[in-house]
Amino acid sequence: MKRNGLGAERPKRPTLETVAARAGVSRATVSRVVNGEARVSPDVRATVLRAVQELGYVPNAAARSLVTRRTDSVALVLSVPRHGGEALISAVVQYVTSVLEGAGKQITLMLADTAESHRRIVRHVEARQVDGVVLVPPDGPDTLTERLARTGVPVVLLGKPAIASLVPHVDVDNAGGARAATRHLLDRGRRRIGVVCGPMDLVAVQDRLNGHLATLHEDGLRPMIALAGLDGESGAAAARELLSGGQAPDAVFATSDELAIGAMEAARERGLRVPEDLAVVGFGDIHAASCTTPALTTVRVPAADQALALARLLLSRLDGRHTSSVVLPTRLVVRAST
């Protein structure tokens, strides 16, 4: 035995051979159990695991990686979205980390905010430093997704990509949520429904606009569209454009809560009452939506469910199971603005 600095002998670290002797099986059997292989009977597996626990055996991570060709590490790659989404990003970090760490994975957090960071991430994945990638891609044109897909490492994506991809993704039913919001306004007797529409290069905005337009078409109504940016000020400007037209709307559907709150501000500026003169519906159910006066009717997006679905989707891919993209339902939350 080796001695420590005080002269006392340190106990030998348990090895595969030690565990095999305690369990009464071969070294190869212990190796198969430790590496998670299926070719071991339940009784033998239980005996080996009991010996592992009794001896305090800890597998050598480097040696295990050589055998299994796995690192038990996953990259969580984040791009900061232009449209805010702080609650969603927070949920992704919290729940993805919790689920994957619970499955024995180490999480490497990587920020994809520059071209150089994209190159660094691709090199890291190409070198097989991780077994899989959870990717929150940028809002705009995205080459990172396909570059990572070409590495052969399992990748899962938050949000539907702008270009059709073989990479499975998790998204919400944006079109369905917009349909529900528009149908709600129609059911309240509103017939002149304007839409305050965020940037059209965002896939989620495109889907929400399409859902809104399809619902108007079903009732033979013509759309009234004003384009906006991402913040409340641009939402107010777009709403002013709608309200100053020849036939002002009696309702507004906005593709985000921030834009809807801006539209409510524009209504107040013109002396209009919400919802009596102008009903307003948003999308997202951010915290501020329930704090406006009146409180904002909106479409709730399930942030935690998206994060959990992402983690489970990656685990399925790592296990070699067939996977397909996941689209989660949204829910209309009716408040006083309609």
Rank of each mutant, 00 (worst) to 15 (best):
D207V: 00
L216C: 05
G132L: 01
P154T: 01
Q106C: 06
A91D: 01
R123F: 12
R191M: 00
T215L: 15
R82P: 10
A103C: 13
P161I: 04
T145D: 12
N174K: 00
P138I: 00
H184L: 00
N210Q: 13
T145V: 08
R188W: 05
T215I: 01
L216Y: 06
V167Y: 09
V130I: 02
A115L: 15
D142K: 13
S98L: 11
L135Q: 03
L135V: 04
H169A: 02
D113H: 13
E101Y: 01
Q129T: 02
G159A: 08
T108A: 14
R120G: 14
R120Q: 15
D131R: 09
L209I: 14
T108C: 12
D187P: 03
V205K: 11
I89Y: 11
G198K: 04
A178I: 05
V155G: 04
D171Y: 11
R150G: 06
G189I: 09
R190K: 07
D113Q: 15
V205C: 10
T114C: 04
G194Y: 06
M110E: 08
T151M: 05
L185H: 07
R147D: 06
P154G: 03
P141Q: 12
V130W: 11
T145P: 09
M200F: 15
G85F: 00
A149R: 15
H184Q: 05
P141N: 03
V156W: 14
G102M: 12
R190Q: 13
D207E: 12
A103M: 11
Q106E: 10
R188G: 15
M200N: 14
V134P: 10
L186T: 01
H184S: 07
T215D: 00
R119F: 00
T97Y: 10
P141H: 04
P141R: 10
H212R: 03
V96L: 04
R120Y: 12
V136D: 03
G85C: 00
M200V: 15
V130D: 09
R147K: 11
V155S: 02
S117Q: 15
D139W: 03
D142Q: 11
A127M: 14
V136Q: 01
L213E: 08
R82L: 15
I193A: 04
L213V: 09
N210R: 14
L148A: 08
I121K: 07
L109H: 04
L148I: 08
L100A: 11
R82C: 14
G140M: 07
V170K: 05
L135R: 02
L209Y: 15
T143H: 14
L185V: 08
K160N: 06
A214N: 04
P154A: 10
R183D: 08
G85I: 01
R147T: 05
V96E: 08
R82K: 06
P138G: 02
A127K: 06
G84T: 02
P141V: 12
R123W: 08
A149I: 09
K105T: 05
H169D: 01
T151S: 09
